[in-house]
Design a protein around this nucleic acid. Structure first.
Lengths: 237, 237
DNA sequence: CGCACATTTGAGGATGTTCAAATGCCGTGG
DNA sequence: CCACGGCATTTGAACATCCTCAAATGTGCG
């Protein structure tokens, strides 16, 4: 049996914001914690949604696979974020795969417990609504990007989003805090790993990024913003 | 002052499913009804979200505009559907334009009334969660399509979605029940009106569709499905 | 009838994909 | 410790798709 979770971990999780201490205890009491090594599927597309999940530590990639095997990265989950809960509120089937891209610690609540908690604490339903609403907006924005922007801008947007979500200051600039392959970026932007590689190479030549095997450091975030916004690149080192 | 709405109109609106009769009365009591002629903006992107809306009759196009003016059609709203409610649950600003593409009758609830109703009747929050969750899925699927499929398949998918949503049997086949331009289809698929026109022309030559000014009739839905699924077109009239 | 707008169609060309092959990096097992 | 095998990445070349530009044609409304 995994260690019983500490109520403190729920702090800062938007889904449980505004709950009383005893309500939080109720929530924590229903949770299971688990260690998941890198490269493992937490759940898979098409499975019945047995549980809702929250990430305590690590990073999880949410990938949707189409009928012909084409994959799209829907999002990366960081500590404090929920995932796999949508299915519980809709048709009960996970709509995507969740794969750990680093060693992870996660909490999970059985689907029944999740819905029961929501009935007992209506604030959870309202929080969930705000969260899902926010994600809907995010995806709508990406839909617009993919529909109207060229590849280079989309890649810039994707990296900037990742920086916002998982950026860590290092002396060379800002580093994206988890292993990220060209293929991943391609699947985030509706492109190919070849094009992503070429684009990053070009940016590297201009000193905008530094990148290696599954790792990206942004040296000049402002330059990336200029590309994302399609502004003239008016800057020297 | 518009006519006081009849409680019957709420029947079949998923947002208010499972509510008691008196709760429904409460809901209806807060609503305003309004006639909106074709081509009018119900609300505009960037405005503070003053109200949530439900369509009783007609058709509304939800369009998002990017920083450079590029437009994307997020969805078409038909009778019985809600729209413009997302903003109330998130940041209070409409994320898109809503424009009538036919003469419409709509109900609306002031934002404050909407949230109050939700607090009074928790079932509404749960319904809303399921609805928003369903839309999130839909948009995620479209994101995958736009990211991985070629234009022809995307157009096929878009038309099929419209048929499901607003298809009407006519002797020639199935008609999409509201005025729909090539430009609209282009903005639904991340393409251009030129490409859409060419594609429809080609399909017309094959007897798959019949289309004219802002109007499309699908004569062979199965053929369209074959294109959407990328199957070999194995059929004769 | 004429104007505004929707649609069609052609030609040319850019963007990005596809195909192919080489190189580099990392952990594993000998 | 080093060699090996599996990935990840890079880069070149050819090509396909689809967009852009341009102009003509059709359709409905005022």
């Amino acid at each position: 049996m995994p260690p019983p979770p500490d109520p403190a971990v729920l702090h800062g999780m938007p889904l449980f914001a505004g709950l009383e201490a005893d309500a939080l205890g109720d929530v924590v009491g229903q949770a299971r914690s688990r260690l998941v090594p890198r490269g493992t599927a937490v759940f898979s597309q098409g499975e019945p949604a047995a549980a809702g999940h929250a990430l305590i530590d690590g990073r999880v990639k949410i990938v949707q696979t189409g009928p012909d095997g084409q994959q799209v990265v829907l999002r990366f989950i960081g500590p404090g974020e929920m995932f796999g809960t949508l299915a519980i509120f809709t048709d009960g089937v996970y709509p995507a795969d969740a794969v750990t891209v680093a060693d992870c610690v996660e909490l999970s609540w059985p689907a029944a417990a999740m819905t029961a908690l929501m009935e007992r604490h209506p604030a959870i339903a309202r929080n969930a609504l705000a969260i899902v609403g926010g994600r809907l907006r995010e995806v709508q924005n990406r839909l617009r990007e993919v529909s109207t922007e060229r590849v280079e801008r989309r890649i810039a947007h994707a990296l900037l989003r990742l920086v916002r979500q998982a950026g860590r200051r290092v002396d060379a600039g800002v580093e994206i805090n988890f292993p990220l392959s060209r293929q991943d970026v391609a699947e985030m932007t509706g492109s190919t790993l070849h094009t992503v590689s070429r684009t990053l190479s070009a940016w590297e030549a201009q000193g905008i990024v530094e990148s290696g095997r599954q790792q990206v450091v942004i040296r000049k975030p402002h330059a990336l913003v200029a590309i994302a916004e399609d502004l003239p690149a008016a800057d020297r080192p």
